[in-house]
């Protein structure tokens, strides 16, 4: 039975492929089509069909490897999982309908063939989902590392003055990482003043405030001064409403004012060099 399906697919490969690309493109979420160029779409689709066909021949191992490669590729292309599983379904439909037209599927063997398809498609479906999700997990964890690396850059702006712009949501894990980077960087750059810019932090709750206070305290211990800049109105409101006491360290409403204050603290001044008038 399997042989019947396999033979049909083998001999109608081009036709199935064209049909699949046509139908899929019609049905596909605009998102998917927009993401990649036409050429990439067609070539990736061909690869997908090849992959499905190779499942009928070739060794199991070969097939798993190809499936992993393919999953990684489509994850990178940003194709949603539903698109791929739907693609599998469409493939089956095309093959089944084609076989019906040619009279290979008859009333008598119809049920058997449907079962046969199911027996073939279910593990394939599962495998796609599992490869896909593990590829996703890997991508996500890689992104998390990348995010951690970039999450707390320390920028020396003048001798003795360093700025750390914080961007995004801060959880306990990140807060610890930030504190570590902040202190190590401050010591490395021999900073006298460290400005923490929280313009890019969407929410400051007690937890975040607590971490910022801890960081400022630790900065004081290593012998530098910490200044908090970029406090937006709504954040000032939450800070006061939550009863958080930020009085013990200097705050400025923007980075510019903060840097001016820092320059003053380190006995520096910016002067324009003549020629202005």
């Amino acid at each position: 039975m399997n042989q019947t399906i396999s033979n049909y697919i083998q001999s109608h490969k081009q036709q199935i492929q064209d049909e699949w690309i046509n139908r899929t493109k019609e049905e596909a979420d605009e998102r998917v089509v927009r993401l990649v160029s036409d050429r990439v779409f067609v070539s990736t689709s061909k690869e997908f069909i090849d992959l499905l066909i190779s499942n009928f021949k070739g060794t199991n191992e070969e097939y798993t490897n190809r499936l992993t490669d393919f999953a990684e590729k489509v994850v990178r292309l940003g194709w949603p999982l539903t698109f791929v599983t739907k693609g599998l379904h469409t493939f089956n439909l095309i093959v089944f309908e084609g076989m019906q037209e040619e009279g290979i599927v008859t009333k008598e063997n119809q049920m058997d063939i449907v079962y046969e398809f199911d027996r073939w498609a279910t593990p394939m479906n599962n495998e796609i989902v599992s490869v896909y999700s593990s590829t996703w997990e890997r991508t996500v964890s890689l992104q998390k590392i990348a995010l951690q690396e970039l999450s707390a850059p320390l920028i020396p702006v003048f001798e003795g003055i360093t700025v750390m712009p914080l961007v995004g949501t801060i959880d306990t894990e990140r807060a610890k990482q930030i504190m570590e980077n902040l202190l190590k960087g401050a010591v490395k750059h021999r900073s006298e003043v460290v400005l923490i810019d929280i313009t890019g932090v969407p929410v400051v709750d007690t937890m975040v405030a607590h971490h910022i206070i801890q960081a400022a305290d630790a900065v004081r211990l290593i012998g530098a001064k910490c200044m908090l800049v970029g406090i937006r109105p709504e954040i000032a409101q939450t800070i006061v409403n939550l009863g958080i006491d930020l009085n013990q360290f200097t705050t400025k409403n923007n980075l510019k004012k903060g840097i001016e204050a820092a320059l003053e603290l380190t006995n520096k001044k910016i002067v324009s060099t003549g020629g202005a008038k």
Binding site: E180, L183, A186, V187, S191, Q214, A218, L221, I222, G223
Partner: peptide
């Protein structure tokens, strides 16, 4: 007090010891 290392500063703060009125410097 000078030269408190980052790791030391962090542990002190987490222990709950702020050394509040202590004068500090980098080196």
């Amino acid at each position: 007090i000078t030269g408190i290392q980052p790791a030391v500063a962090i542990t002190l703060i987490e222990l709950g010891i702020g050394l509040d009125d202590v004068l500090t410097a980098l080196d």
